[in-house]
Simulated scan of single mutants.
Amino acid sequence: MLSFISFSQPTDANHYGSTRHHPDVEHDSLMDLDDDLGGSRLTCPGEFITSSQTFMRGHGTYVDQDEVIASVAGTIERVNKLVTVRAIRSRYNPEVGDLVVGRITEVQPRRWKVDAHSRQDAILMLSSVNLPGGVQRRKLESDELQMRNFFEEGDLLVAEVQAFFSDGAMSLHTRSLKYGKLRNGQLIIVPPILVRRLKSHFISLPCGVDLILGLNGYIWVSKHVKDIDQGEQGLDAEAVYSNKNDDIDDATRMAISRVSNIIRVLADYFVPLTDMLLLEAYEWVIEQEGDTKDILQEDMSDALVAAISARA
């Protein structure tokens, strides 16, 4: 788990000079940052990490005169004696079972292509979606002709990574009722490294806002909706595959904007996103009784991150 020790990197030249190895500084002492494996810290390209005589270099590092140096900006991670740097700005590396939010980019025969912030588009097969009526059967040619009634270009959806094709592309599915087309909200994009793996990535805040934290860095902030009950009448295609947003009152719109701005601020300060942290951040913002747009102001942003880090 990441622990945000500092939220901004010094930019003066003296900083980079001081982080290099100095005869009066013991190399191994600089690795105390993660001795208990309870946190990681940010590093910059060219910054000294540790001695190559004590630790092995991994991805994102190189060796220079018996020193392990960071080659990318990111977080230092250590597994036993292996030290790596996980880049801040990188594409999403999927795993089976991951929850992702994506956007339909193309409709092809018996499949949809989905932008999931990965190295290549994911694939959603026609056989991997729920049909109207909730009937479990083989997809027919008539279903293929109606594919655009389910998803079309530009639609947002939440899905689960089911498997991988031979070329490495993700295979998605939306067979569960909690997956499918997204409406009544807005999309926020953050670095995938900031989204922590949680027991549930579906979060309902007390302000009437639902969050879907996609492990690919796509976060959906929307109006709260009741859980869909399939019941005896089967799947309601009008509710699941509709392109029309519901009426949203002004208070809910304000709450959605407030939560979205909080996420943007935390992402700008490289704060890992969890359900508890987002709830605490929202409660702190409510206590300030300021306007929604004030959250993005530098003074309030600094105060928000400072308050959250103090509680953490």
Rank of each mutant, 00 (worst) to 15 (best):
G46I: 02
D36N: 02
I88P: 08
F48A: 01
H22T: 03
D28S: 05
L30D: 04
R41W: 13
M31I: 05
A87L: 01
R78C: 04
Y62N: 14
S51W: 06
L30F: 08
D24A: 13
R91Q: 08
T50F: 03
D24I: 10
N80A: 13
Y62P: 03
L30A: 08
T75G: 10
Q65D: 12
G46M: 01
S52L: 07
V79K: 12
F55M: 14
V63D: 13
S29P: 00
L42A: 15
V85C: 07
R86Q: 09
Q53N: 15
A73E: 15
M31T: 09
G46T: 01
R91T: 10
R89P: 11
V83R: 01
L82G: 06
V85S: 01
C44F: 11
T54Y: 00
T50M: 07
S52F: 12
D24H: 13
I69L: 03
C44G: 01
E77Y: 08
D35P: 00
D32Q: 06
C44V: 12
V85D: 02
F48D: 00
I76V: 14
T50L: 02
N93L: 04
H59T: 13
L37I: 05
F55G: 05
L30P: 06
M31G: 05
D34A: 09
V68G: 06
T50V: 09
A73K: 15
L42V: 15
H59P: 10
I76C: 06
P23N: 01
D32K: 04
I49G: 08
S51Q: 06
I49W: 05
R91N: 09
V72D: 07
K81W: 00
E77V: 12
H59G: 09
R78G: 04
T84Y: 03
V85K: 02
T54P: 00
V72C: 14
Q65I: 07
F48I: 02
G60M: 07
G39M: 11
E47Y: 02
A87V: 02
S90K: 10
M31C: 08
S90D: 10
V25L: 00
V63S: 10
